[in-house]
């Protein structure tokens, strides 16, 4: 594929994000923009397991929450810098992802999904009972001064989130276009046939879970400093799970651009709705959009695009274009 085009776009994206921090006068754009970028990472990461391999992870909130609390712990215990917090959170997420991957040995479909909810509640319960990080009532966090060249912390977080979007998308894109992606699709379509066609299904699933977990958890880490506060109920909010899933499915799971579009569309709408109406309504919109798309446009925005703009697609790398 057009490899150079992608990296040029990525460089332009990060430059634009940085440029915005230099020229924009109002901080609000960074508060809202950070959330949109955050959901881009979450949806992209979720899709590596849920979209490519077909395992519906309801436990996005477990990874995200664990990322938040890894950052809290690192900050409280060692005063670790933000980038180290993110990296360690990512590694913790990869380990948790690996564990979730082992669940796939015995569980498929809805059983796997329910197991991931179970896992998130259990992890949340442990955090609630862990006094060092504030227990159920949460913990207040103080932002250190921003690192040069930034003069405002929120602007720095915004650029970090933009870089994470590029990293997550680059990895998702690599996975999708490499032999890993083909193997995961085989797993999603028929795991037994995949295994008997030489696909090391368990290894691929463990890999997908670990990569997905890395980014889901890493994205939790800066959220602690974004909010300057962490409590289990909001860090482990199930809304993260439904958002990541809905954004991927609404965008379309077959291609890395799907979750990105879905997140851009839904997170921006949510930012508008939260400000203009209420945060309940934005969850309602999310749920309604999810159900509408799942029922009416099963291949998401990508599917709609293919149906209306490429009527006779027999492109071998493409997905379905059922008549």
């Amino acid at each position: 594929m057009r490899g150079n085009g992608f990296w040029l776009a990525a460089a332009a994206f990060i430059s634009a994000a940085y440029g915005l921090t230099v020229f924009a006068t109002n901080d609000y754009v960074f508060f809202a923009g950070y959330i949109i970028l955050q959901f881009m990472v979450l949806a992209t990461a979720w899709n590596i397991l849920g979209g490519y391999a077909g395992y519906v992870n309801f436990g996005t909130n477990a990874f995200f929450g664990l990322g938040v609390y890894t950052a809290v712990f690192m900050a409280k215990a060692f005063g670790a810098p933000l980038l180290l917090q993110i990296l360690v959170a990512g590694l913790v997420g990869a380990v948790l992802g690996f564990a979730v991957g082992l669940l796939t040995l015995r569980m498929h479909g809805i059983f796997f999904s329910i197991a991931t909810i179970a896992m998130s509640i259990i992890i949340e319960t442990f955090i609630i009972n862990w006094k060092f990080v504030g227990g159920a009532s949460g913990v207040q966090l103080l932002r250190p001064p921003p690192t040069a060249p930034f003069d405002s912390y929120i602007r720095m977080l915004f650029v970090i989130a933009a870089v994470m979007v590029v990293l997550a998308v680059a990895v998702a894109r690599y996975v999708q276009n490499s032999w890993i992606g083909r193997g995961l699709r085989a797993v999603r379509d028929d795991e037994i046939a995949a295994e008997c066609t030489g696909v090391p299904t368990l290894q691929l699933k463990l890999l997908a879970c670990s990569i997905s977990g890395f980014f889901l958890c890493a994205m939790g880490a800066p959220a602690a400093m974004y909010l300057q506060y962490a409590d289990p109920a909001s860090a482990f909010n199930l809304n993260y799970s439904v958002s990541a899933l809905a954004m991927s499915l609404i965008g379309g799971t077959a291609h890395w651009i799907g979750p990105l579009l879905g997140a851009l569309l839904l997170a921006s709408t949510q930012q508008l709705l939260t400000v203009t109406i209420s945060s309940e309504v934005n969850v309602l919109v999310l749920g309604l959009m999810l159900v509408l798309f799942v029922v009416g446009a099963p291949d998401g925005l990508i599917g709609l695009y293919r149906r209306f703009f490429k009527p006779k697609s027999s492109d071998p790398s493409g997905g379905s274009s059922a008549p």
């Binding site: 899933l245 809905a246 969850v283």
Partner: peptide
């Protein structure tokens, strides 16, 4: 995936 997502959406 979609069947599960469908009911998840309904729940929300």
């Amino acid at each position: 995936v979609r069947g599960i997502a469908f009911f998840f959406g309904i729940a929300f």
